[in-house]
Design a protein around this nucleic acid. Structure first.
Length: 540
DNA sequence: AGCACA
């Protein structure tokens, strides 16, 4: 088999005509447009393939009709002026193939699944919650799987359809994740987004590496949260208290009024908040926040502990697990509230709404779940607001307030997309349901028991400007919204689960100095749009 | 300056 020059006409002269022309000696980084420019006069270009060859200075151009290709070749064969691009002579000849097989690098063919590559970060620097937050702005995110490969830290993000995926891609490709959503040590994290070949990811567990937001019954990965729900008992050996679904929060340096709405908003980022009871103790304000599940509480604690609600070290949160498991809330007032009970005048939670519309019409304001914190809408910031009851927060209240953080809260050091993208990329209608705690149904536990904390305290009047927070990451509660969804298992590409557990929410950096406007600018300012890659089909 | 799935 060594006869190299077997039967193939290898060299030029004998090339039989083809609709496909082979161009060589192209100038460096020759664009598809340039190619088309010189070929167009001879006919319709149906396809191209650029940057071919070791030097990437060759290309193929396919005409719609053979005669067109022939006309071009013969024209230049007898022309005194050689074909040239940027003054450089381009040699052309018939290709030895009859058509261009465009391997669309499989990154350009639209898919509902995006392949996201993070530049400048290590695995784990970008929490899955941050990803969820960011991508949810464009539509309901079904699943996310992160993994590490040679390309670095990557993620697959599954949307309902390729349209939403495309919108996310075009909006985010080449952009960077706001710094404040990333750990301190991370400089910038640029996103490179392409379409994945996957259509449906199979997520086996809800873990720190993968999530299926459509399957409420998916087990939580043993690796993410072990049976006891313990995050590795921190090397710092801090919390020894048994975990609980109820958190005890004490607020230090309470320079500003902290209302129940504020607390509700903050804590809702980690799961459905069933009840809140605030009371005075030791000359300080404390509150008990009840989740339906332990994992939400754990996530909230991990993420929020030690963080301040307001800029400047004000209203610093100290969290611990309460021994309570179910608070007794006798009345809904400024100090205590039971969000599981629909009440007149109050906005009841309606998780069902969430589950029913992946990317459907906007959820009525009254139904916006606290989860909205997690599933931010570019157009609807979640802010603690005066209407607060029921923790229904929907619209952003932009007015920057003196020394208060003007950045939206967050669920996770996460600022809502609003601030990130500012402009309504996705239509507001795309209210996204977010995952919330197991048994997350608000109405699920109307039972009251347990020693009620003592309530006392002055009626807190809402002080106009809703405070913005910066907060911890919306930790994931391990469960998902009540979506009917194909349970599945994840396998395939992403698989490497390395890294420390429990680092997810807590790894988010809080940057209190990041005003919303900055964020806006950041993502909006043209960040050098990626050059129109040229390997796609072109027409005329 | 010489033919393309990484």
């Amino acid at each position: 088999m060594t006869s190299s020059a077997a039967g193939q006409p290898q060299f030029r002269l004998t090339q039989p005509p083809s609709k496909v022309l082979h161009l060589r000696n192209l100038p460096w980084e020759c664009s598809e447009e340039e190619l088309i420019e010189i070929c167009k006069p001879f006919g319709k270009i149906v396809n191209t393939k650029c940057n071919v060859g070791a030097n990437r200075n060759q290309a193929f151009v396919e005409f719609g009709d053979l005669n067109q290709a022939i006309s071009m070749v013969s024209y230049y064969a007898s022309s005194s002026e050689p074909a040239q691009i940027r003054g450089k002579t381009v040699y052309l000849q018939y290709s030895n193939r009859q058509e261009i097989i465009n391997n669309k690098s499989s990154g350009d063919v639209p898919s509902n699944v995006l392949l996201v590559t993070f530049e400048g970060v290590e695995a784990g620097d970008v929490s899955i919650d941050v990803l969820h937050l960011v991508f949810s702005a464009f539509g309901f995110v079904h699943k996310i799987a992160t993994f590490e490969k040679t390309a670095g830290f990557q993620a697959l993000v599954q949307f309902s359809n390729s349209e939403t995926a495309s919108s996310a891609r075009t909006a985010l490709d080449g952009r960077s994740i706001p710094r404040y959503l990333l750990p301190d040590h991370v400089g910038t994290c640029h996103l490179h987004i392409s379409f994945s070949a996957h259509v449906d990811l199979t997520v086996k567990f809800q873990s720190h590496r993968s999530r299926d937001y459509t399957n409420p019954y998916l087990p939580v990965a043993p690796s993410a949260m072990d049976g006891t729900g313990q995050y590795g008992v921190g090397a710092d050996g801090k919390k020894k208290e048994p975990e609980s679904n109820v958190l005890l929060a004490s607020i230090e340096n309470m320079q500003y009024n902290v209302t129940i709405e504020v607390l509700h908003t903050i804590f809702s980022a980690f799961g459905f908040v069933q009840k809140i009871a605030m009371f005075e103790k030791n000359a300080g304000l404390q509150a008990l926040i009840q989740y339906p599940d332990i994992s939400s509480a754990v996530a909230a604690l991990e993420a929020l502990e030690g963080h301040c609600i307001y800029e400047g070290g004000y209203c610093k949160l100290h969290l611990s697990y309460s021994r309570h498991t179910d608070l007794t809330v006798k009345a809904n007032n400024d100090r205590s509230r039971d969000y599981t009970v629909p009440e007149t005048g109050l906005l009841p939670m309606q998780p069902s709404m969430l589950g029913s519309q992946p990317s459907g019409p906007a959820i009525p304001a009254s139904n916006v779940m606290p989860q909205s914190l997690l599933g931010p809408q570019p157009s609807g910031l979640v802010m603690p607001s005066a209407n607060g009851v029921g923790g229904v927060v929907q619209q952003q209240c932009p007015p920057a307030s003196g020394n208060m953080m003007s950045s939206p809260i967050v669920s996770g050091g996460q600022v809502l997309p609003n601030s990130m993208y500012g402009v309504p990329y996705p239509p507001p209608a795309t209210q996204v349901p977010i995952a919330y705690g197991p048994g997350g149904h608000p109405h699920s536990q109307p039972s009251f028991s347990g020693p009620p904390p003592s309530f006392s305290g002055a009626p807190p009047a809402f002080s106009g400007t809703p405070p913005a927070f910066s907060g911890a990451s919306p930790a994931f509660s391990g469960t998902t919204p009540p979506f009917p969804g194909p349970p599945s298992t994840f396998s395939g590409t992403p698989s490497t689960f390395s890294g420390a557990m429990g680092s997810v929410p807590s790894s988010v950096a809080f940057d209190y100095s990041q005003p919303t406007s900055l964020q806006l600018g950041r993502l909006h300012q043209p960040q050098v749009l990626p050059p129109t890659s040229g390997s796609s089909v072109f027409y005329m």
